[in-house]
């Protein structure tokens, strides 16, 4: 045995001296949930690349309007400035009123991102609280299940059309309309998770071994929920951005003097044959953002699954 490793290629292996302290470490892994999640996540270059895309678009969307003084709704009275194709001064060209598409795209990105973030936070926030209660408080199960069935069976168009009549069409109305149906799905999801985690064997075992409640929650339950919730949030954002585009198409979107990606896509679509770039830019950005969020969300959910941690 002793001579065997001498035959191994030099440079690949080196003998390690015995270290008592290091040997102790194997007995207790310094496992940190978040660090492992993060480590698993950044191991994948695609995830990191797409995260970067999101960061860049967020930065452009939120910083451009602050640092630029170009008004995205500034109409040019000179008709020769209408429908310009991309050129210096107007990197994305101008639209049918001579409005600068570069400025409009970033303002629109901001509006749509904001919309997505707010809806995600509200949906997940409400869904988490209600879902946890629904899962833990057994008395709530019946009425909540009924509420779920009812909300699930009210066609969404009814709410989407009715709300703007009761409130006014606008940013917050869209948010309320989309949230009104979004939270219940997440709540139900959380409820199912809570029930299954609560009654899972390892938790029963943990309880039997006398693990204190706070440790059970922080180590056993929360990691599962947090990963799920973050993924839900990450997936709600592209869904909300997509919904805004769809609502614009059926005429229930944001007021048209609000600059949003949905409005840009729908306005561009009308002129696609003639001025393809008016559709191309906002579409490319919508696609990049939604795909990035979708993949990053999924990757993060994979990374945050303790089973995938090594």
């Amino acid at each position: 045995m002793k001579n065997d490793y001498a035959q191994l290629p030099v440079g690949l292996f080196r003998p390690a001296p015995f270290d008592e302290a290091a040997a102790e470490l194997t007995g207790y892994a310094p496992y940190s949930y978040w660090r492992s999640t993060f480590r698993t996540f950044i191991r994948n270059p695609i995830s990191v690349g797409l995260l970067l895309v999101i960061v860049v678009f967020c930065a452009m969307g939120f910083l451009y309007p602050v640092f630029s003084n170009v008004d995205p709704n500034r109409v040019d009275l000179e008709t020769s400035q209408w429908n310009l194709s991309p050129q210096s001064g107007h990197p994305f060209g101008t639209d049918g009123l001579g409005r600068d598409l570069w400025a409009r795209t970033w303002h629109g990105t901001r509006t749509s991102m904001l919309l997505g973030f707010i809806i995600a936070v509200l949906d997940v926030g409400i869904g988490m609280v209600v879902g946890a209660l629904w899962g833990y408080v057994r008395r709530l199960d019946r009425p909540m299940t009924e509420l779920y069935n009812v909300l699930n069976n009210v066609p969404q168009p009814v709410i989407l059309v009715l709300l703007p009549y009761i409130l006014r069409p606008g940013f917050w109305t869209i948010i309320i309309a989309l949230c009104s149906t979004g939270w219940i799905g997440i709540a139900r999801f959380v409820r199912n998770k809570v029930i299954s985690i609560r009654d899972a064997e390892y938790n029963v075992a943990s309880r039997c071994l006398g693990t204190p409640l706070h440790r059970m929650i922080s180590r056993n339950v929360l990691p599962y929920l947090v990963s799920v919730l973050i993924m839900e949030a990450a997936l709600t954002i592209p869904y909300s951005i997509g919904s805004e585009v769809y609502l614009g198409f059926i005429g229930l979107g944001l007021p048209l003097d609000t600059v949003s990606l949905g409005n840009l896509v729908n306005l561009g679509k009308n002129n696609f044959m003639l001025y393809p770039y008016q559709l191309a830019w906002p579409t490319a950005i919508v696609a990049a953002i939604t795909i990035s969020f979708y993949i990053v969300g999924n990757r993060f959910s994979d990374a945050s699954d303790p089973r995938n941690h090594v």
Binding site: G242, V245, V265, K269, F272, T283
Partner: peptide, 17 residues
């Protein structure tokens, strides 16, 4: 990913066109 993430309006429109 493409089908689920990109708003369907966009790719449906291009398919038709």
């Amino acid at each position: 990913t493409v089908v689920r993430a990109i708003p369907s309006l966009i790719w449906l429109f291009f398919i038709q066109l």
